[in-house]
Design a protein around this nucleic acid. Structure first.
Lengths: 203, 203
DNA sequence: CATTATGTAGACAGGTCTGTCTATTGTCAA
DNA sequence: TTGACAATAGACAGACCTGTCTACATAATG
């Protein structure tokens, strides 16, 4: 490899970093490869040497995002709470923090699935896999809480998560995360979880 | 006006009809004006005489969809149920029917907001207004049910609706509507509504 | 030093898209 | 009939986009 004078970060990583920011901020359709190479300070041929096409770059970006999300999300949940039910609820606190980030623009996977339209697009496949991975992760939390009908409860909680993400994006309103948390807590209590609902309403 | 020989339907309506199908099926970004005029059998200048630009056509399409939705949705809910709580729950049965339509591809307003990116786009404004109209309509149902904290309950129910719509789209899974309905029923019961949950699980 | 691999810079082809323009046709009303 | 209006067909400019190509520069390795 040729460590360029301008930067010692590998070319592929620089491309992915620039693509990540631009794709998320403006959508995959509104960002051309010319802007990605300009932002990353890379030659166009380098981009096409590392990625077969723009569609392949989109898929690679989503895969990288998915990888990061799986590890970061799991680690954060486990660091913020130990009780199984608390871990489910703390997910919504994390969502609120995410929604409050100034550059928040919704879920990259949902947004990309909408833009890519066709489910045979490699990027769409990654988005779908991410969606199922979210379900699977929440399911581990619900299973740990040993509540009845774990699959149903998990699906309902993920619907609240996705709904909150979409509404927070379109309305630019981070507070919906708290409403989603309240709803999730109600579902948990109805399933028999030992949660103090009064305490939730306060903070 | 000049009623064309090929059709007596006004030109503007033919343009909107073609745009509606194409925009919804493939997304506003993936459909060019050339395809709209080909599908509607209209001259390009006619399109630009009726709509200032493609962006204006997108906004007009969304406004028309919003108008139709407001009247159709309200009428259907009121026709399918009379009890306030039943009316809230029947919304999710309607969602399921919608999700099962072969051409279902999610919510046109959410999808368009994602594609248009910028909240100052006229189409984005219509999508946002539609989102708030949904909230307002559900709020009337919740108010009719005379339950405590109507705004919170309404927000939580709309989160379930939006979440179900997004997940149904990305997974092509209409069954999530039933999970959303179940969650909504649990929330209603927790709020004191007189609902038989066992009956819900059956159908 | 020489070779090989990697990256750079930028031109370029071929396609698509929006929006404009012109010339022509058809329809209604006075 | 005639003039005003609406719609048609299609060419066109200008911009943008993807992906390829060439010529050159740089770095590590044998």
């Amino acid at each position: 490899m040729a460590p360029t004078k301008t930067s010692r970060i590998p070319v592929r990583d620089r491309i992915l970093a620039a693509a990540s920011e631009l794709f998320y901020r403006e959508g995959v359709q509104n960002v051309g490869v010319d802007r990605i190479i300009a932002e990353s300070g890379v030659a166009k041929m380098s981009l096409y040497n590392h990625f077969k096409s723009k569609d392949a770059l989109i898929a690679a970006w989503l895969e990288e995002q998915d990888d990061r999300w799986r590890t970061c999300f799991k680690a954060k949940v486990e660091a913020l709470a130990t009780d199984p039910c608390d871990r489910i609820l703390v997910v919504f606190d994390m969502l609120k923090d995410w929604f409050e980030e100034p550059d928040f623009r919704g879920c990259a996977f949902i947004n990309s699935a909408v833009e890519l339209v066709h489910s045979n697009h490699p990027g769409y496949q990654v988005a779908l896999a991410h969606n199922q991975a979210t379900y699977a992760f929440i399911l581990t939390l619900v299973n740990a809480a040993q509540l009845p009908n774990p699959e149903s409860l998990t699906q309902q909680i993920t619907l609240l998560m996705e709904g909150a993400t979409v509404v927070a994006m379109i309305q630019k309103n981070a507070a919906v995360a708290l409403q989603a948390k309240q709803a999730a807590a109600t579902l948990l209590v109805a399933a028999g979880a030992p949660i103090n609902l009064e305490h939730l309403l306060a903070g």
